[in-house]
């Protein structure tokens, strides 16, 4: 049993886990795209409010990005800190 779960096995599984964790980036990508699309529509309807629309969009996008960043953090922890290593 001990021979099966050696360090290389854990390292490989950590790399696979890191890859899976970064899939979290799909959500923020879709969300930011939707926000940018609606902002473009808003500017088209009311070009005078371009500054306000842009800053609101950037703020919302940055908040939406957080979930993706959590996935990225997990991936980095798995790859560089290696918490699963004995």
């Amino acid at each position: 049993m001990d021979g099966m779960f050696n360090e290389n096995f854990i390292l490989g599984c950590s790399a696979i886990g890191a890859g899976l964790a970064v899939i979290a980036g799909i959500g923020p990508g879709v969300g930011q795209g939707i926000a940018a699309g609606h902002a473009a529509a808003a500017v088209g309807r009311n070009p005078g409010a371009k500054g306000d629309v842009t800053s609101t969009m950037l703020l919302g996008q940055a908040v939406a990005e957080t979930t993706g960043l959590y996935g990225l953090l997990i991936a980095m922890l798995l790859l560089f800190v290696k918490p699963l290593m004995p």
Partner: peptide
């Protein structure tokens, strides 16, 4: 936590 993690993760990802 979310405020600091957002800033940290963004800058760290750029650095990495």
């Amino acid at each position: 936590i979310s405020l600091s993690l957002r800033l940290f993760a963004n800058v760290l990802s750029g650095t990495v």
